[in-house]
Amino acid sequence: MLCSLLLLLLVCSTQATHFYGTVMTYYPKTPHTNGSIEVVLRYKLNFLSCDDSDSWTCFLGDCGTQSVELHKVEESSGEWCQREGVMTRQVPSNAPFYLELSGGNWINDVVNDISSWEALTLVELRNRSDTNEANRSPQTTILPALRVPSNCQRDFNLLAFDPDGDKVKCRYGNTSQSECNPCTPPSVLKLSPSCTLSFSPTDSSDEGPYVVQLVLEDIPQQNIILTHTNGSKELKTSNDPISKLPLQFVLRVDGMVPFCTEGLYLPKFLPPTPANRARLNTPVNQTIHIPISAEANTSKYVKK
């Protein structure tokens, strides 16, 4: 059995003080004969220190029972810490349900005036007519913080892949839907539905950290029917989202640099680094080694 590993490579660095965002995806298991189903949810919570913590709670619907396993990933300079969680939920049916993360505070001095955090995941497990299986969420991930000089044009092509073959669209969160609180988008970024964030050169007055609060949605390529355990059905057209996931992080706009060419003041990835969004197959429960090499001006960093 092989798993697809989706690789996200972004030229960036980090700096932190408290909350740095979150991301979640989910994987349904084979339904039981009594109609119940097990779903595995993988999420990341990013803070200055792993002494800080929070947890996802049931927001709406029958979220069943849960068990959670946590892993800690510390950035080597001590600027941020990430908790990777694996939440397994046993739900009585394949009815959709919502999970919520809320609390405070984000990092200090956020330019777009966001302090408290809030994120929402819609878990849709009903059987799809095109695959005859439960819906699977898009696959995505992000580093806790990205950095860009204020005078450099940069595009961040975010990871967006759906195992069911659906279109994945990105949008900013909506305050009225409890997807963030508040959901003020960064004024220095433009977001495309295909999940590319574009930054254009800006004034020094715009420098500082921005909170980015995105929602990823999977949208079928054609009309499909979602079937509940009790036999009820719902039509989803090629304009209707099925599930939704939060993708939240920090963008820090730094001071100007003399040149924006990658490899000088901005890091540049070198071979044998895999391409951004590369998909690598690996057997389940086996370690995969990914060589990554980058340089900026006269410095070079290689990690395996």
Rank of each mutant, 00 (worst) to 15 (best):
S4I: 01
L6H: 15
L9W: 06
L10W: 08
T14E: 07
H18E: 09
Y20I: 06
Y20A: 11
G21W: 01
V23C: 07
M24G: 01
Y26E: 02
Y27N: 15
H32M: 10
N34L: 00
G35K: 03
G35T: 02
V39I: 08
V39N: 00
R42D: 14
F47C: 01
L48K: 15
C50G: 10
S53T: 09
G61E: 05
T65I: 05
Q66G: 11
H71Y: 12
E75T: 01
S76H: 04
E79M: 14
V86D: 02
R89P: 06
Q90R: 01
P96C: 01
Y98H: 08
L99E: 02
L101P: 11
G104S: 14
N105V: 07
W106V: 09
I107W: 12
N108D: 10
W117V: 04
A119C: 06
T121V: 14
T131E: 00
E133P: 01
A134M: 08
Q139H: 03
R147I: 05
V148T: 12
R154V: 14
D155C: 07
F156K: 00
L159D: 01
F161D: 09
R171Y: 02
Y172G: 05
N181S: 15
N181M: 11
P182S: 08
S187F: 07
V188A: 01
L191W: 03
S192G: 05
C195H: 03
T196A: 02
S204D: 09
Y210F: 08
Y210H: 06
V212D: 01
V212C: 04
L214M: 13
V215W: 02
V215G: 00
E217P: 08
P220S: 02
Q221V: 14
I225N: 12
L226I: 06
T229Y: 02
L251C: 09
V257Q: 02
T261R: 10
L264D: 14
P272C: 04
T273D: 07
A275N: 13
R279G: 09
R279L: 06
L280F: 02
T282N: 13
N285G: 03
A294N: 10
N297G: 05
Y301P: 00
V302E: 10
K303Q: 11
